[in-house]
């Protein structure tokens, strides 16, 4: 049996269990509608322009956030990873900032920039900088000194060594960081929409419908869209990474973040 078929079987079993639980009355159908109902609602929603606008708003904010995070984290990671004095100097600051959960910053962000797209982009950038940044720093730490010596023995200068040895070594790790960042950015984008009462976005959709009774099918359909989106993005990036960096062993990369 092919893995794909097995995956479908797993999905089928989950749906059957879900359906069975509702039918047997173990949970009220108001709280957990059966899968067929959620599926029908999802199809229905995907035909509505309003809902599609929400999806587009979320995806757009998410794309911008990831792009900004890359633009900040890659140069910052390279600087912090190659210049030790800068790194020790900023260490406490970074170690303190990193564990602050982005959602704790939601109230602050709302006050400063309001609850529009700026807020979710800002928070998603904040959350998704770290995996890229730390993957790059640790990857630079992890370069085999022998490789650097080899490059130096050919008479390469520092900048050239950085370009010819360090960057190729760092690239797959940075890419793994990007994959993690993309996932986190999506989660934070939706969470902010949801918690900051944005006007547009799938998160905003979920919070709006969850206030009306018997709307659990809408909530689940909305969550489903985000879940599938996140899953697809992860899958695409993982496959692309495996293709691009076939020469590298990135199994360790994830352990670094």
């Amino acid at each position: 049996m092919r893995p794909f078929v097995r995956g479908l079987i797993g999905l089928g079993v989950l749906l059957l269990v879900w359906d069975g639980v509702v039918r047997l009355g173990l949970v009220a159908a108001d709280n957990l509608p059966p899968p067929a109902e959620v599926g029908a609602r999802l199809v229905d929603l995907l035909g509505q322009e309003e809902f599609l606008r929400d999806v587009v708003a979320t995806v757009l904010a998410w794309l911008i956030a990831v792009a900004v995070a890359v633009a900040i984290a890659v140069p910052a990671g390279l600087i912090l990873g190659t210049i030790p004095s800068v790194r020790t100097a900023t260490r406490m600051l970074i170690e303190f900032l990193r564990p602050i959960p982005p959602v704790a910053l939601i109230p602050l962000t709302m006050i400063v920039v309001g609850s529009g797209p700026d807020a979710k982009i800002f928070l998603a950038v904040y959350a998704s900088i770290w995996p890229i940044l730390f993957n790059i720093i640790y990857a630079l730490d992890d370069i085999d000194p022998l490789l650097l010596d080899t490059a130096r023995s050919f008479g390469h200068r520092r900048a050239r060594v950085l370009a010819t040895v360090a960057l190729p070594h760092v690239a797959p790790f940075a890419f793994t960081g990007l994959r993690l960042s993309a996932a986190i950015a999506l989660i934070v984008t939706v969470s902010t929409e949801y918690l900051a009462a944005s006007e547009l976005g799938v998160g905003a959709f979920i919070i709006t419908v969850s206030n009306s009774p018997n709307s659990m099918d809408d909530v689940l359909a909305g969550a489903l869209v985000i879940g599938v989106l996140g899953y697809l993005v992860n899958e695409v990036l993982e496959r692309a990474g495996r293709r691009m960096f076939r020469w590298s062993d990135t199994t360790r990369a994830e352990a670094l973040t």
Binding site: I187, G203, A223, G227, V228, G230
Partner: peptide, 9 residues
């Protein structure tokens, strides 16, 4: 899929 779900939602 579950990992990708934004749990706050």
């Amino acid at each position: 899929f579950f990992r990708a779900l934004p749990s706050p939602a």
